[in-house]
């Protein structure tokens, strides 16, 4: 039973206020959002910071909902992802991790590198270009989620790909939102 205490200590050490591991659906997304909102409300968080955290959370969670079917539960053992929020004195850290197909790693890495290579104006231009010229995907995504997360956070997106097996890699994504309201 020591793992319970170990997990508890890890959460405290990393200032994690919420972890969800499991299947991701729209209903789960709403529940996780409601919990995080209540948590921020009870701590008296500034509304502008709350909105940014909410914003990044939605894009992050809905990304997982839309892409989780890539991990087929009939052929693989598990079909889950992880989402967490860390709250520090200076910032909120929103992280997620989910399996993606190995063949999609390079394309995803390129998109994220392109976004991280842009400044505020560049991101705005890219956003407008995508919204004008791109139709919704068959999964209902606008292709704008990462761009929006980068814009709302005002900081670079951090990411990593860890190879799981010859078919899947684990994609981790970290977005930081500053708690100082003065600037970006």
């Amino acid at each position: 039973m020591k793992y319970v205490y170990d997990l508890h200590k890890t959460m405290l050490a990393r200032n994690l206020i919420l972890i969800y591991e499991g299947e991701f659906t729209q209903e789960i997304t709403k529940s996780v959002l409601a919990m995080a909102e209540r948590n921020m409300d009870s701590m008296g968080e500034e509304s502008s910071i709350k909105r940014k955290v909410f914003n990044v959370m939605v894009e992050c969670l809905q990304n997982i909902v839309k892409h989780s079917d890539e991990y087929n539960p009939l052929t693989e053992k598990r079909h889950t992802a992880i989402f967490m929020i860390g709250k520090h004195d200076e910032e909120y850290i929103i992280t997620s991790g989910n399996p993606i197909k190995n063949e999609n790693v390079d394309g995803l890495r390129e998109r994220l590198e392109r976004i991280n290579g842009l400044d505020k104006e560049g991101l705005k231009t890219l956003y407008k270009e995508i919204i004008k010229n791109t139709a919704l995907s068959d999964k209902g995504g606008a292709g704008l989620g990462f761009v929006d997360m980068a814009r709302k956070s005002g900081q670079k997106l951090e990411y990593d790909f860890e190879k799981m097996n010859d078919r899947y890699s684990f994609f981790s994504l970290k977005t930081t939102i500053s708690r100082s309201t003065t600037g970006e």
Binding site: R51, N55, V58, E59, I131, L136, A142, L144
Partner: peptide, 12 residues
Amino acid sequence: EYFNTASSKLIL
């Protein structure tokens, strides 16, 4: 009060 990116496409 808030809209996600998929909604922004539909707002356009």
